[in-house]
């Protein structure tokens, strides 16, 4: 198989579509995975909490 322009454009036009769709589904699953809800909320709240401004040792 020779790697030429035709082959590369064919690959980009087909595979590109499917990997981006697969990645979008992956991101959505991760984001809405029920057990992730709590860590996300904690992370958002931790930013505005006024704990001591020191590293955790």
């Amino acid at each position: 198989m020779t790697i030429d322009h035709e082959m590369l454009t064919g690959f980009s036009k087909s595979f590109g579509l499917f990997y981006l769709i697969a990645m979008s589904i992956g991101v959505l699953v991760y984001t809405y995975w029920p057990s992730n809800k709590k860590p996300f909320e904690n992370a958002a709240k931790a930013v505005v909490s006024d704990e001591e401004d020191r590293p955790c040792l």
């Binding site: 990645m23 991101v27 809405y32 996300f40 992370a43 958002a44 709240k45 930013v47 505005v48």
Partner: peptide, 24 residues
């Protein structure tokens, strides 16, 4: 912005989805 406003980000999930949307 959340720090100064004293409010957590409105939707943390949206921030993740838009992160991957923007990067890819």
């Amino acid at each position: 912005l959340p720090k100064r406003a004293g409010r957590p980000i409105y939707s943390y999930r949206t921030s993740i989805i838009s992160f991957w949307g923007i990067t890819f």
